[in-house]
Amino acid sequence: MRNRQITNYIVFLGPAGVIVLLFFVMPVLVDIGIAFTDMGRDLQVTKFTLRNFERAFTGDSRLPKVISLTFIYVFFTLAIFNVTFGLVLALTTTAIPKGGGFFRSVWLMPRMSPSVVYIVLWIWAVHGGEASLVNQIAMNVFGVEKPLDLLSNTPVMLIILSNGFIGASFGMIILTSAIRGIPDHLFYAAKADGAGSLSIVRHIVMPALRWPLTYITIWQTLSLLVSFEYIILLTGGGPFQDTTVYALYVYRRTFQSGQYAYGAALALFLIIPGILIAISAWRFTNMQQLLQRPRIEVQ
C-alpha cells in the first residue's frame, strides 16, 4: 500500500516535478552561480568574485534612473489599466444585459494578436510622420500644425498605454468570473433592501472582489517587472535610455554587451523580490484559501 502510494506520487507528480526543476529551479541556481563569477562574452569563468555586486551598488550610474522608471512604468500600468480599467471593464460588461461578451472579446484581441503585429499597429498609429493615425486626427480634426512625435516626446506614456491595453484583459477576465460567481440572490436581496446600482457595486460586488484584486495586483506586478517584449519592439528602450526598464536593462547588459556575470547579478535582484512577493502573498493574503475555494458560498 505504501509502495503503491510512492509509485503514484512519482507517476503523477514526477513529470511536473522534472519540469519545475529544470526550468524554474535550475535557472535560478545557475543565475546565482554566474552572478559570483567574472563570466564575459567568451563564457569563460576565471575566478569567483563579488565585483558584480560592488558595481551594482556603487559603480552603475544608470541603475537609479532605470529603477525609478521601472517603478513608474509598473505602478501606472497597474493602477490605470491592469487593475482599475480591468475592473471597470468587468463591472460594465457584466452589468449590461447583452453585448458584454462582445466588448470583452474586443479587449482580448491585443492579447491574442502576435506581439509584432500589435506593435506594428502601434507604430503606425503614433509614429512622427504626417501619415500616422494620431497625426491625421490631430492635424485634420484638431488643426494641429506640426505633426506630433509621440515616440520621441512621450515614450513612457506609450509603453504604459501599449502594455496596459494588453494587461487590462487579464483583470477583466478574472474579475468577470468573480462577479459572475456572486449568487443572483445577493443582488436581488440588495435591490429589495433598497440598494441602488452604485451601492450594490460598493457593498456587494467589491467585497467579493477583494481576493481576486489582490491576486491580480500581485501577479501583474511580477509579470510587468520581468517583461520587456513590447517595449523593445515599440521603442527599443529609447529614445536614449528613456524607456529602458529594469528587465530590458538586464537583457541589454547580458546579451548585448556580453556582461553575463553582471547581468546575472542584476537578474538576481529581480528574482529575490519576485520570490519574496510570491511567498508573502501566499502568507498574508491567504492565497491558499483563495485558490482552494470561492469566498462566496452558495447553498
Partner: peptide
C-alpha cells in the same frame, strides 16, 4: 424594488457573506 418596501427571505437566505 428599492422603492417598494418589501421584505424578502430567500431560499438561500442571501445573507451578505462579508
Amino acid at each position: 424594488a428599492r422603492d417598494r418596501n418589501v421584505g424578502i427571505v430567500f431560499q438561500s437566505y442571501a445573507l451578505y457573506p462579508h
